[in-house]
Design a protein around this nucleic acid. Structure first.
Lengths: 344, 344
DNA sequence: CTGAAAGCGCTTACAG
DNA sequence: CTGAAAGCGCTTACAG
């Protein structure tokens, strides 16, 4: 068996064993036509014999293509971002790309700049950014960074394509469902005020209520956490106890809905008999809460896939980078047991 | 302003502007000593002026260091793996490395081999593998792949360091808590049989029960999902209705515990009055379930950090790569409202 | 169908 | 303290 003296084999080692030049090895490795079948076989055999692995760094240097895509994630600890990231990863791998991730903990301009720099240093060919916060989306637009870039759930009009779930439509569907059940108004426990998704859901909720000719109560500002849902649930219960008409609540995510449910349970408010509750996200637990939570499903996998599709498109035809692509994934209402007509 | 005619500036462009050789630019970029202060200033200025970014690919080719670490993840959609990955990412970034992730959907030897190959192709300098399934851990040990490698929650004795939470101790603590409350036995809803963590929790549960001189009931095999918890919860309720003594249940994760809680609620079994329930993981929802779930906390962030520490150690001293550094992060019982003494 | 030459953008000795 | 030379492992024209 041929040896390379301890170091890992390079292309010319394979060439030597196969009795050809290293260019021919390169042709075989890259599947070029115009190589004699017999030569291909000989080279293949030499490759297998030596356990040769092409050096991707050397290839990248000359082709100027690193084959790596970047993902800028905000908090992969949250359900949505984690799901989306998984979808992106899978789509990237299937497209033959490597995926390098960097999460940004620090949302200050400096923090974001540093994260972007991390990606640029790595010479990613493109990047998808999960940018749910308004601040982040703006920083991204202003800063130099990897291009092309597509944003997930970021704000529109920032100069790059945006892919995301139709938050407003999802919120409207939730409210319409509740209104259709006969509720005369719907309260809202909102997500973090600095998140664009929270804003869009507030907007959809308000618009739908207005369209139905109903009163729009003051929304309660949460932070996505079960704890905030719990606290605001108690706040709503107090309002109800004080005489306000609280018969239906649209909660901006399922985790907060868990807290709302607990608060209502503690004060003896029955769901859905006394108050209906609708969430957003459809986390795995939602169907198995008591009662099963009516919610708005976001298909994060599809968002991830769509984001990568748009990115790949921009990579292939940089000129058409602003071609209109299908960037919005519909949200789907899933009715379970936590919503019902108001009791008479 | 100097131009580079459209292409991005390279080291020799900077050299020209600064009036030095490109080697001197290299010295400045890499912070080498023995460069005249005035020269440093000139070079720095030229770098800023041109917006020069060193080409990491070219550097990697000659230094043979890519500065990228790999992460092999199994299902980043699950709570634990996602958290761990986030911890690894942060630790890698702080150590100055890039992190490339590849998730493996297909657990067959071929699927795992492909995922490993993806990492090898990328010339990662090291890799951490989140390998909760027995099969995956074994495949990893048998297959060629990136080295050094550290496994998270993988099986011991596979030839590489393993970092993880002490599952068995966590399970024992949960059971001891329940037994200490006065329960004469504790039932168990287990996780997926092919997961090492599920196995370790079963083992800890059994050992503790045995140590306390109690009967060990047949465990019920779930799959981590709320749905399986729900179905098995009903199974347990039936057993109880049939006269079996079911007063305490240790559920292998919180998501299944959610399902168990729902099942018990449906048949009118009160928690903790009739049956105590203890989970595992401490997902964000757990404190806000009804009742608040007693559970075993896993510090995934710490696991991720520890994994990277071990990997970095192996990178620095390859000779001591097999030093026994199997690191174990303790699990911590968090008592809430779902566990209480058995009713008389 | 195949090989000799050049070069991708750096770093590492080696001189001076 | 600084520069000329060589080379990392590939791919891309260019010949033949």
């Amino acid at each position: 068996m041929p040896t390379t003296g301890g170091r890992s084999p390079v292309m010319s080692d394979v060439a030597k064993v196969a009795g050809v030049s290293h260019q021919t090895v390169s042709r075989v490795v890259n599947g070029h036509p115009n190589v004699r079948e017999e030569t291909v076989v000989r080279v293949r055999r030499a490759i297998a014999e030596l356990g040769y692995q092409p050096n991707s760094t050397a290839r990248a240097l000359v082709t100027r293509r690193t084959n790596v895509l970047g993902a800028l994630a905000v908090d992969t600890t949250l359900f949505g971002p984690a799901q989306t990231l998984a979808g992106i990863e899978r789509a990237a791998r299937e497209a033959g790309y490597f995926l390098s991730i960097v999460s940004v903990d620090d949302l200050s301009p400096d923090g974001v700049a540093e994260a972007l720099d991390h990606l640029v240093q790595q010479a990613v060919e493109g990047c998808v950014a999960i940018t749910p916060q308004r601040e982040l989306a703006h920083a991204l637009a202003a800063l130099p960074g990897p291009r092309p870039l597509v944003a997930v759930e970021g704000g529109e009009g920032a100069g790059f394509p945006v892919v995301g779930v139709d938050q407003e439509q999802g919120a409207r569907d939730a409210v319409r469902h509740l209104v259709g059940l006969g509720h005369r108004t719907v309260h809202h426990v909102a997500g973090r005020a600095d998140w664009l998704e929270a804003e869009a859901r507030v907007h959809g909720w308000r618009e739908e209520l207005l369209a139905a000719g109903h009163v729009v109560p003051e929304p309660l500002a949460g932070d996505w956490s079960p704890r905030s849902g719990y606290e605001l649930g108690h706040r709503l219960a107090e309002r109800r106890a004080a005489g306000e008409e609280v018969t239906a609540v649209f909660v901006a995510n399922d985790q907060m809905a868990v807290g709302v449910l607990k608060a209502f349970h503690e004060v003896g408010l029955r769901v859905p008999d006394d108050v209906s509750v609708v969430g957003f996200d459809d986390i795995p637990e939602s169907a198995y809460l008591t009662p099963g939570l009516t919610t708005v499903v976001q298909d994060f996998t599809r968002v991830g896939t769509a984001a990568l599709e748009v990115l790949l498109g921009a990579l292939e035809s940089p000129d058409h980078a602003d071609t209109p692509v299908d960037r919005t994934v519909p949200a789907v209402l899933r009715v379970r047991d936590s919503s019902a007509p108001p009791s008479a």
